[in-house]
Structure formats: structure tokens, C-alpha cells
Design a protein around this nucleic acid. Structure first.
Length: 268
DNA sequence: GTAGGATGCTAAC
DNA sequence: TTAGCCTCCTACG
């Protein structure tokens, strides 16, 4: 689940559920007991996301910093005994939010939060984000654009699905070195992410095959596939490209499976 | 029922 | 480079 859109969605959902409520904070699993005790029983101060990082505010400029990692989840449900290893529970009389299997969950100061965020690249889901630092990093790098898009210090929030899909949508060869990427290609990648990722927040899933996009822009409309028609290339290796029919290819880039169409994606 | 992989990233080799 | 988080889902028998 967790690319940037998931964390922004969770921040929204937490704020909707807990605004104007006193929130009980606990760690049923036992691995966040001290931190939980320090922020237990306060009026909700708000949550915010930057890339894949989630920050929940508490009194005294303290924050609970959550990163889901690959297998973490934060789910809402009715009050009741915790199921499984619940690292963190936020609760009112009406609703609980249970955090399981996170990469980390820690109490941090405001200085620590600012330092952490200063190391993240611009987030396409942040309306105030300035893409210029990302452009500069990419334009000076010999690493491939397929690798650079996964680097959270370059761009925050893009994960393996958005990486593959935005490169397909813009017909860009993932192996293009950053410094050989055309300025127009970078502008197109950023604009497309700004356009696309809010749908992920609203729908709580990644749909890159949008009815809003015309065939002229995106190529021939795709046939619906096993994923319900939401993606062009992600996890579609050995299946025909929705646009040209060539077999989708895969290889490991930055430790993760990258999927692309070798025929459609020839731009640099 | 069981195994294996994954929308991520860190720390310890 | 590899184990780890210890969840969730799918494929397979």
C-alpha cells in the first residue's frame, strides 16, 4: 500500500477521525510504551505527511514519526481488543487506528522533524513544493532516471508503482541517465505526478489509466487487465503492452522490480 | 494449509 | 550485500 499517496490519505483520515477529540495513545505490542505514555490523553493536534513519512503532532512540539516501510499498515476500526502486533493504537470511544509492522514509530522533537524533512526531496502532493532542487539533482546525475525517481532525497513520495507508471505515461526510457534527460521530460514527469497522485489520495489506490486522459495524449485506450485496468506496466511483465502490444519487460533497478515497454518508452 | 513476494528502508555486515 | 520488520495478499496443493 504505502507510496506517498497512502500517507497523505492517512493524514487526512486521522485528522477527520480525531480532530477536536482527546486521543488515547498506547502500544499494545509493548515496543512504543514510553513514547505513547508521553503523548497519551491529549487533544488531537493534527497529522501531516511528507513523501512516505507521517507526522502526528502533540503538545510541546513533539511528534510521533511513522514510516510504514514495505509491510507496515495503519488501519481504522471499531474499539476492541488489538489483533496481532499493534505497535501504536490511537483511540477514542468510537474509533481506533492501529499501526502494525512499521519501519519505525518514534517520538521526535520539532527540530528532529525539520531535519528529517530537510533531507527529503519535493513532494508532488504538496501544493507548495518547489521541483527545482529535484531538477538540479537529476540534471547533474549519471544515475538512471529509473533509479533517481526512487531516491527520496531527490523526490519524496514516488515508489515502485508510480515510478514505472509515470515513465510509461511519458514514454521515457528508464535507463536514461539523469543528466541526459531532456528538460521537457523532467517537466512532464513532475507535472504528471502532480496531476496523478491526488487521485491516489482520493481513491486510496493507484490508478494511472485515467478516463480523464484522452487517447491522443496517452495512446490507444487499454484493455482491462487483472489489476482492473488501473496500470499500464506495473507487474505486467510477459503481458502485452496496452498501447503497442509488445511484451512488457522487467529488471531489477535500485533493488526493486522495474517494469517497462521497450517499444513505447524510447524518449530521453 | 502453506509458501513466497511485496507499493520501503535501515543497520549491520 | 544481506537480514530484519513480522503484515497482507496471492498462488498453489
Amino acid at each position: 500500500m504505502p507510496e506517498g499517496h497512502t500517507l497523505h490519505r492517512l493524514a487526512n483520515d486521522l485528522n477527520a477521525a480525531f480532530a477536536d477529540h482527546v486521543v488515547a495513545v498506547s502500544s499494545p505490542q509493548g515496543r512504543f510504551v514510553e513514547g505513547a505514555a508521553l503523548v497519551d490523553g491529549q487533544l488531537w493536534h493534527g497529522a501531516q505527511a511528507h513523501g512516505k513519512h507521517l507526522f502526528c503532532a502533540f503538545a510541546g512540539e513533539m511528534w510521533v514519526h511513522i514510516h510504514l516501510g514495505l509491510i507496515g499498515s495503519l488501519r481504522f476500526g471499531p474499539p476492541g481488543p488489538p489483533v496481532g502486533q499493534v505497535r501504536l493504537r490511537l483511540a477514542t470511544d468510537d474509533v481506533v487506528a492501529d499501526l502494525r509492522g512499521p519501519q519505525f514509530c518514534a517520538l521526535i522533537t520539532d527540530d528532529e522533524r525539520r531535519l528529517l524533512e530537510s533531507r527529503l526531496g519535493p513532494d508532488p502532493l504538496d501544493p507548495a513544493a518547489d521541483p527545482e532542487p529535484a531538477r538540479r539533482r537529476i540534471s547533474r546525475s549519471s544515475r538512471s532516471i529509473g533509479a533517481l525517481l526512487m531516491d527520496q532525497t531527490v523526490l519524496a513520495g514516488v515508489g515502485n508503482v508510480y515510478r514505472a507508471e509515470v515513465l510509461f505515461r511519458q514514454r521515457i526510457n528508464p535507463e536514461t541517465p539523469g543528466r541526459k534527460l531532456k528538460p521537457s521530460s523532467w517537466r512532464a514527469i513532475w507535472a504528471d505526478l502532480v496531476d496523478l497522485m491526488p487521485y491516489g489520495v482520493a481513491d486510496n489506490r493507484i490508478d494511472t489509466v485515467r478516463p480523464e486522459h484522452t487517447p491522443e495524449e496517452m495512446g490507444r485506450p487499454p484493455r482491462v487487465d487483472d489489476h482492473g485496468g488501473e496500470v499500464y506496466v506495473y507487474r505486467r511483465d510477459q503481458q502485452p503492452c496496452h498501447v503497442c502490444g509488445a511484451m512488457i519487460r522487467t529488471k531489477i533497478v535500485e533493488g526493486r522490480n522495474l517494469f517497462w515497454c521497450g517499444r513505447c518508452q524510447r524518449r530521453s
